[in-house]
Amino acid sequence: MQWLVEPFQYEFFRTGIAVAMLAGALCGLLGVYIVLRGMSYIGHGLSHAIFGGAVVSFVMQWNFYLGAGLWGFLTAVLINQTARRTRIGADAAIGVITTASFAVGVALISRYRRFTQSFDAALFGNILGVTWDEVAVVAGITVLVAAVILVAYKQLLFTTFDAEVAQVYGVRTQWIDTLFALALAAAIIASMQVLGVTLIAAALVIPAITARLLTDSFDRMMLYAVTIGVLCGALGMYVSFYVDIASGATIVLLQSTFFVFALIVSGLRHQAGRRLAHVHVD
């Protein structure tokens, strides 16, 4: 059991594992709604858009969390409104708006080359450089997002299932969409330090889609997605510590392994179901 305890003597491991587990839970929770809305690409797009916001915040000397958060929130709202009010589909709206936002960041970096080094952490994640203050921010965001999801649980479920019909039954779907956009922007900012822009999309989508393969129940899907997110966050930190590879990449690779496992289990389950059906027919 020594190997389990040994890494905890290092401060960077203690903060790292805490933030990795929190980000895993947060992404797993929101990922369920993203996957079921068929907007898997939004995590990828929004993280890139927020990178643009982060650079703008830096140039304008705004607080990183507020600047990038507001930028991400406005981008998410813009995507929602463009997809709903125009003939452009959600995928195209994500493609156009988030890429343009990312391009703003790249353009600013190329204009002020001296900033380049500062954004490596945002791009690729720097979990080992996380401070306890940052852990507290991520914990705060996680608790807040979880509270929002609990309070708006029924409205969110109905809106995700069928937004138009939910509106008929009195759900204020515009408010729910805005609330969700806010939660998503906050989650991406919180996870940026852990995974980096390039890997956030995977952390949002893989636990949720893995959970979907394992169950037909919405509540269980949420539970599984959060559990997979937390477990991969913790395991990823250990593997990264002992094998000496980047933590963000390790976490995503572990999640991918879970996904392949779930795919096999679900395939076997379907085969067994078909065989049982044949037996019944015979």
């Binding site: 029924k154 409205q155 479920l157 109905f158 299932f161 919405f218």
Partner: peptide
């Protein structure tokens, strides 16, 4: 969508 019959029906009283 991962919902049961009961969950769908309960949506109606949101």
């Amino acid at each position: 969508f991962p919902v049961t019959v009961e969950q769908v029906v309960l949506m109606g009283r949101v």
